[in-house]
C-alpha cells in the first residue's frame, strides 16, 4: 500500500490506479458522512463524488502529519462541500420549529443505547430536520464548535446552541422510542 502522501500526489497527477485506491479506502466512509448530513442516498453519493474530485484538485494543500491525516483532511473538505451544497439549496435558511418536540423526556439509558445498530442511529440522525441535523453533525460528531457552525451556516452562536439542544432532545426521544419498541 502506498503512503498517504504518495497516494495524494499520484491522484493529482491523474494516476487512475491511485484514484481507484483512494476511492476504495475512503469512499464508503465519506459517503456515510454525506448521508449523515443530507439524509438522501443519491444526493450523498453525488456529494461524495464532488468532494473526492475537489480533493484531486486541492491535494496541494494537504500536509501530511501522521497516519490518518489524509482521512482527517478529506473529512474536513467533505463537510465543507456538504455545507456549501446545503446552503446552495437554501435548506439552511429557514429554521423550522419542530412540532413533535416533547418536553421532559426521560433520560435515555446510555448503556442500552450502546447496542443500537449504527445504521439505526444513522437513520435517527437522518430523520432530523435539516438544520438540526447539520448542527448536530457538525458539533457532536465532526468536532466543530458553535463559532465555526455559526459562521458556516449563517446563524448566531446562541442560535446554534439552542438548535443543538433541540436536536439532542429529539434524538433522545427517538432513542427511547427505539429501546421501548425493541423491548428494553
Amino acid at each position: 500500500m502506498r503512503t498517504e502522501q504518495e497516494l495524494a500526489r499520484l491522484c493529482t497527477a491523474g494516476d487512475r490506479e491511485a484514484q481507484g485506491e483512494l476511492y476504495a479506502q475512503y469512499a464508503s466512509r465519506l459517503y456515510a458522512l454525506c448521508y449523515r448530513y443530507v439524509a438522501d442516498r443519491e444526493e450523498a453519493q453525488d456529494l461524495m463524488h464532488d468532494a473526492m474530485i475537489k480533493a484531486m484538485d486541492s491535494f496541494k494543500s494537504f500536509i501530511y502529519s501522521g497516519d490518518g491525516s489524509l482521512y482527517a483532511w478529506l473529512r474536513r473538505l467533505t463537510v465543507n462541500v456538504v455545507i456549501d451544497r446545503l446552503r446552495q439549496m437554501s435548506k439552511l435558511r429557514l429554521v423550522p420549529l419542530d412540532q413533535t418536540m416533547e418536553t421532559g423526556n426521560p433520560e435515555a439509558d446510555e448503556d442500552a443505547a450502546d447496542d443500537i445498530p449504527a445504521q439505526v442511529l444513522m437513520d435517527m440522525v437522518a430523520a432530523l430536520p435539516s438544520v438540526r441535523r447539520t448542527v448536530f453533525n457538525m458539533y457532536c460528531i465532526d468536532g466543530f464548535n458553535h463559532k465555526d457552525i455559526a459562521a458556516a451556516i449563517g446563524i448566531t452562536e446562541k442560535g446554534s446552541a439552542s438548535i443543538l439542544a433541540k436536536a439532542r432532545a429529539q434524538l433522545k426521544s427517538q432513542v427511547n422510542d427505539y429501546l421501548k419498541r425493541t423491548g428494553r
Partner: peptide, 9 residues
C-alpha cells in the same frame, strides 16, 4: 449522549 452517536457514526 453525544458519544453514543459520535463513537458509532
Amino acid at each position: 449522549f453525544d458519544d453514543i452517536f459520535k463513537q458509532r457514526l
